[in-house]
Simulated scan of single mutants.
Amino acid sequence: MFDQCRWLNEPARWSLDAAGLTVVTDASTDFWRETHYGFTRHSGHVFGRDAAEGFTATVRVQGRYEQLYDQAGLMVLVDEKTWIKAGVEWADDKALLASVLTVGQSDWAVGALESDASNFWLRATVDAGVLRLQVSQDGRLWPLVRLCPFPRSERYFVGPMCCTPERSGLEVRFSEFSIGPALRKDLHDLS
């Protein structure tokens, strides 16, 4: 699937091989829009491709988060004012499960991560104006992270995302990236 991807904010250092994508973040990269901090940033790295509504995207993320706001995961973007990013984010001296939904302004939802932050899977399903985020430690069991309204669009830009607002040099490995038809499972079906 990576052969169909293109960069939004291409980093200076990255490589692609048969096993996946490796990215080293540039300095002061982030996605954020206004709330609390009062600024807008749209400089984070995303290696994605277009998808139509009615999709499920999955990616495996491997990295070592060490400094404030180091983050990596998955992004679904309509435009600069409409997007969601989700994954691991380093804050309060630990790796947290985080998601930022932006529809004009950004929110920030964080929670405890009950699994290994250095190796996890994320899944995002966008269907019928709803976005479902799930996380997995093993790629088989998928607890719900977030369920929210998400604007309908003819096109979404979807792919692995990473940022380091306070530094450069976070190395992240992305693999097992796929986009397919929306999984229309029951909300409490964690498979």
Rank of each mutant, 00 (worst) to 15 (best):
M1L: 12
C5V: 02
R6H: 12
L8P: 05
E10G: 04
P11N: 04
W14E: 06
S15F: 00
S15Q: 15
L16Q: 10
D17M: 04
A18D: 14
A18L: 05
A19F: 02
A19L: 12
G20A: 01
L21H: 01
D26H: 08
D26T: 02
A27Q: 13
S28C: 06
D30V: 00
F31C: 03
F31E: 11
W32N: 03
T35W: 09
T35C: 10
F39W: 14
H42W: 14
G48W: 02
R49Y: 01
A51C: 01
A51G: 03
F55I: 02
T58S: 11
V61H: 09
Q62I: 07
Q62L: 07
G63F: 04
D70F: 02
A72G: 15
A72E: 12
L74D: 04
M75G: 13
M75E: 10
L77S: 11
E80A: 12
K81H: 13
T82M: 07
T82R: 14
I84E: 05
A86R: 02
V88G: 12
V88Q: 13
E89D: 13
D93R: 09
K94N: 11
A95I: 01
L101Q: 11
L101T: 06
G104C: 09
A109Y: 09
V110P: 13
V110T: 14
S115R: 08
N119I: 00
R123Q: 15
T125D: 12
V126I: 09
D127W: 06
D127T: 04
L133C: 08
Q137C: 05
G139T: 03
L144M: 11
R146S: 02
R146M: 05
C148N: 10
P149Y: 10
S153K: 06
E154Y: 00
R155V: 03
Y156T: 03
Y156R: 03
G159T: 02
P160L: 04
P160N: 06
P160D: 12
M161S: 14
P165N: 12
E171M: 10
E171L: 01
E176D: 15
G180L: 05
G180H: 09
P181N: 10
K185S: 12
L187Y: 13
D189R: 00
L190R: 08
S191A: 13
